[in-house]
């Protein structure tokens, strides 16, 4: 593979004043069987920003997210969030997996899924009371799904399922949100509902990191980008880093002309 160096950081003076990091990965390598899925990734994610992780299929975007959360064994690497080791930071992190990663035929109602987000508060033996139900319902209304609270999850559309996942993350009351392809296969109404919620979280000072595949919406949705193709290509603000040369380098191919040169 091509040897690439993080160019963005050295190109613009503003990049030297690096923002405070919410999440830091150091030398992270993950391998499936023998082939490395991501190799020696060192990255800092800015606090209070919305960062898109972009890269071609097979670039290891989801893998990076999962390894960050300790869901996959890493060959090497260190994860720190909020200046703490991962295990101690996890209670402040909400994870939204890919919608397709679960069996939506599971016997549960929409409300039951959102209540899962309150697990840390209630504990393993905790009872679900009125307060928990009220909190879950409030999270559902933030994503416009309160009318569906008693609906069977298998009866939802893809976009509605994604909103339920987001409501479950909201219930966690986290300060850092890691989302894996939150806009994959959702309708336009859901996409705008999700981005509204994510931006309001950002405006409350929380940090958002999302694996994203639609390059056209990057400038409208995100503050920063991390370009990944098994190795880190670049990380920085959309204005400095979401540039044709760097994105083309990431994808290893010519790109549509919508990206600023």
């Amino acid at each position: 593979m091509t040897d690439v160096t993080p160019l963005a950081r050295s190109t613009t003076p503003a990049e030297f004043a690096a923002p405070e990091a919410v999440l830091t990965l150091t030398g992270m390598t993950v391998a499936y069987a023998a082939a490395p899925a991501i190799e020696d990734v060192t990255a800092r994610f800015a606090k209070g920003a919305m960062t898109a992780i972009i890269g071609p299929n097979g670039a290891g975007k989801s893998t990076l997210l999962k390894a960050t959360l300790g869901l996959l064994p890493t060959v090497s690497g260190k994860v720190e969030a909020f200046g703490l080791p991962l295990a101690r930071a996890l209670p402040r992190i909400a994870y939204v997996p890919q919608r397709a990663s679960v069996d939506w035929d599971f016997p549960a109602r929409v409300l039951d899924v959102v209540l899962m987000g309150l697990y840390r508060q209630t504990g393993a033996l905790g009872r679900i009371g009125k307060a928990e139900t009220a909190r879950a319902t409030e999270c559902l209304s933030r994503v416009g799904m309160e009318a569906f609270a008693d609906r069977q999850i298998g009866a939802l559309s893809g976009g509605q399922q994604q909103r339920v996942f987001l409501a479950r993350a909201l219930a966690q009351g986290a300060d850092l949100y890691l989302l894996d392809e939150p806009f994959a296969g959702v309708d336009a109404a859901t996409e705008s509902a999700i981005i509204t919620v994510l931006k309001s979280l950002r405006d409350e000072g929380r940090s958002i990191i999302a694996v994203h595949h639609d390059l056209a919406t990057v400038p409208a949705y995100f503050d920063r980008v991390l370009l990944l193709n098994r190795r880190l290509v670049a990380e920085g603000t959309v204005a400095t880093t979401f540039r044709q040369a760097l994105v083309a380098q990431t994808y290893g191919a010519a790109l549509p002309g919508t990206i600023p040169a």
Binding site: L69, L71, L90, P91, Y95, P97, M116, Y119, A124, R168
Partner: peptide, 22 residues
Amino acid sequence: RIFHRPLAIATFDEGFATSLGI
């Protein structure tokens, strides 16, 4: 009965359950 809740969450969504510390 005792482990119903973590077991149910882990059965539905293992990755999410792990991120909850289950």
